[in-house]
Amino acid sequence: MAVYYVEDDENIRQLVLYALTQSGIQAEGQPDDTAFRAACAKSIPDVVVLDIMLPEVDGLEILRRIRNTPGKLSRVPVMMVTAKNSELDIVRALDAGADEYITKPFGMMEMVSRVRAMLRRASDWGGGRCKDVLSLGALSLDFQARELLVDGAPVALTMREFDLLAYMMRHSGVVLSREKLLQNVWGWDFSGGSRTVDMHVLTLRQKLGEHADAVETVRGVGYRLVGSRPGDSVVE
Rank of each mutant, 00 (worst) to 15 (best):
F143D: 10
G152T: 03
R37D: 11
P77R: 01
R13N: 02
G152M: 04
Q26R: 13
D95L: 03
R75A: 13
R146I: 09
G193V: 08
E210T: 14
F36P: 03
G227F: 12
E161W: 05
Q183G: 07
D213H: 15
E7A: 01
G71H: 09
D132R: 09
T217W: 02
E210N: 11
V47S: 03
A138I: 01
D9H: 06
D8K: 10
L164G: 03
P105D: 06
L136K: 03
P70Y: 08
G97R: 00
G222K: 01
M80H: 04
S23Y: 00
V201W: 00
T217G: 05
L63V: 04
Q206D: 14
V175C: 09
S177T: 15
E100R: 08
Q22Y: 07
M79W: 02
S43I: 08
P77Y: 03
E110V: 14
L181K: 01
W188L: 07
E179D: 15
E236K: 13
R13V: 02
A156C: 12
I52N: 00
A35N: 05
E161D: 07
M169Q: 05
I44C: 08
G126K: 12
V81M: 12
G173R: 11
T21D: 01
G59C: 05
G192V: 11
S233E: 13
D124S: 09
R92I: 08
W125D: 13
D142Y: 07
K42Y: 05
E161Y: 05
G231W: 12
A93R: 00
N11T: 14
L63F: 01
F143P: 01
K207L: 10
V81S: 01
A93T: 08
G227C: 12
G192Y: 12
G137A: 11
R160V: 07
L15W: 06
K104D: 07
V6S: 01
G220I: 10
Y167C: 02
R129V: 13
W125K: 09
S191F: 07
E110M: 13
C40I: 15
E87M: 15
Q22D: 14
G71N: 09
